[in-house]
């Protein structure tokens, strides 16, 4: 994947309010941007899953500060002839929360053992090739991304 390192990133940004309807708007924006930036379908789907789960966590656990402030989204795409990388950063004003510090629960072996919650972070980890978190300026900045190669 070293082929994309020296390419110039292309950036797209969106600001949304903290609501379920806005999560859907963000998802639609991401899908359209992925098509425009020529991101392969599988990687676009991975990004969409992660974005929905990150925003759902902000809404559910970010607290009143997260719900009162806009949420910033930045998509950065690096594309070379044979490889690419897309990184999405979600910035919110909620409680400090590092998703990377959360220990993943063991997978249940049976339906009876399964608990309905806690799947969002599992999906984020399994659908991303890179993850990063920083707390800066009173905001959480969580980055997830995906990489691909072309034949």
């Amino acid at each position: 994947m070293g082929a994309v390192v020296n390419t110039t990133p292309r950036r797209d940004e969106l600001t949304i309010a903290a609501s379920g309807a806005e999560v859907r708007r963000a998802s639609e924006w991401l899908s359209a941007t992925c098509v425009r930036r020529d991101i392969p379908q599988a990687q676009a789907q991975q990004l969409e899953i992660c974005l929905n789960e990150v925003l759902a966590n902000v809404l559910a656990y970010g607290g009143s500060a997260a719900l009162a402030a806009p949420i910033g989204l930045q998509l950065e795409v690096l594309c070379a002839a044979e490889a690419g990388e897309a990184r999405m950063t979600v910035s919110d004003a909620g409680f400090a929360f590092n998703p990377l510090a959360v220990k993943m629960p063991p997978r249940p072996n049976t339906l009876a053992e399964a608990r309905p919650g806690g799947l969002g972070l599992v999906m984020i980890r399994r659908c991303s090739d890179l993850l990063d978190y920083r707390r800066e300026g009173g905001h959480n900045h969580f980055t997830f991304g995906t990489r691909w190669t072309r034949d």
Partner: peptide
């Protein structure tokens, strides 16, 4: 992709 990511396909 969503079902595989969560492993729910192993349960349902």
């Amino acid at each position: 992709m969503s079902l595989e990511a969560t492993g729910v396909g192993d349960l349902i």
